[in-house]
Design a protein around this nucleic acid. Structure first.
Length: 311
RNA sequence: GGCUGGGUAGCUCAGUUGGUAGAGCAGGGGACUGAAAAUCCCUGUGUCGGGGGUUCGACUCCCUCCCCAGCCA
């Protein structure tokens, strides 16, 4: 890690203009952008993840296109790879500009968080999933309560996914509850200045609607069809991305393409809401109201604050 | 102009023999350590179209006006 200058981090809900601001910031401080996005990770998921096309990039963009769609990525892997990428930039004296909307990934990189490494048994997970199906969520949660009461306490019985993860951790001799460290007690891995782009809700939603329509115009359906032939499906992590899962469903005949389009819009709105609730609880975030700040002025302010903090 | 249906939460609609309303969707809030664009939790007060009347009390009955749809002229 580089003493002095903190990492510039640009976060916010989808469609708030993060990419544009990050590019301007990178331009101003001669930095390079490190994407913090769980779906832009995947190769060829371009239109639906609103990835900045290579020919339009003003500065190099990292941590994008590093995984195939039929492969499942993970936070643990992101933490290691993004940190390696950041360290390499710092070693060259290039300031990284982190930009993205995946809260967990951001924290995994800039904060001290341990994702105990070890073998992740897919067949064991399948067994737990089967148990949840046959015996019910309550049974599985009861099992967790028996083996690790503290974790069961921390996880709602309906949250099958977390319950399974906690059981897996038991199997590995770890504890979900014990690994949880509240945000304010976590030590930073990198000094960072986090900026959140805030857009008035109604404006944000109008932008989301417009952007979804633009994605369709740009050929999103064709992109999904192509990826489906390369292994993208509802069972893969990439196939759960908004924009992709709905179109996969429409392609299979489960809904019309118009219904898929509408579903993408509402799912994106909800996603934006979840992103806001994640970033709002982080007191380090400095919010910039994009309702009255231009991309340029926001970028100038960020660049200035990051450079000023270097003193 | 006449007849018939309708006008109840942002939308689609319920509403029992008159006791000032409730569902779905949308929306809002929140949680979050190996799938995170995922997963999960919490959340329903609105001039019951306007005005008048009957009544202890009207979304519910009566009158009148306005608006929408369909049919007839």
């Amino acid at each position: 890690m580089m003493p002095g200058r903190p990492l510039a981090c640009i976060v916010g809900p989808t469609a708030s203009g993060k990419s544009a601001v990050a590019e301007q910031v990178a331009l101003l401080i001669s930095g390079e952008i490190v994407s913090i996005d769980a779906m832009q990770i995947y190769r060829s998921m371009d239109i639906g993840t609103a990835k900045v096309p290579p020919e339009q990039r003003l500065r190099p963009l990292h941590m994008v296109d590093v995984c195939a769609v039929d492969e499942n990525y993970s936070v643990e892997r992101f933490q290691a790879e993004a940190r390696a990428c950041i360290d390499a930039l710092l070693a060259q004296g290039i300031p990284p500009v982190l930009c993205g909307g995946t809260g967990l990934y951001l924290n995994a990189v800039i904060d001290e968080m341990d994702f105990p490494s070890g073998y992740r048994g897919d067949e064991r997970r399948a067994r737990y999933e089967e148990l949840a199906r046959t015996e019910g969520a309550a049974y599985l949660h009861g099992e967790l309560a028996r083996r690790d009461p503290a974790s069961a306490e921390a996880i709602h019985p309906n949250n099958v996914r977390r319950t399974i993860r906690a059981l897996e951790m038991c199997d590995e001799g770890a504890s979900y509850a014990a690994s949880l460290t509240s945000l304010h007690r976590r030590a930073p891995h990198y000094p960072a200045r986090i900026f959140g782009l805030d857009v008035p809700r109604d404006l944000l939603y109008r932008r989301i609607d417009r952007r979804v329509d633009e994605m369709f115009d740009a050929g999103l359906v064709g992109e999904v069809e192509q990826l489906a032939s390369r292994g993208l499906s509802a069972r893969t992590t990439a196939g759960q991305a908004i924009g992709y899962k709905e179109i996969l469903k429409a392609l299979s005949g489960a809904m019309t393409m118009d219904e898929a389009r509408a579903a993408i819009k509402t799912n994106t709105r909800r996603y934006a809401k979840r992103q806001l609730s994640w970033f709002r609880h982080d007191e380090r975030v400095t919010w910039i109201d994009m309702g009255d700040a231009s991309v340029r002025s926001a970028a100038q302010r960020i660049a200035q604050e990051v450079e000023h903090a270097a003193l």
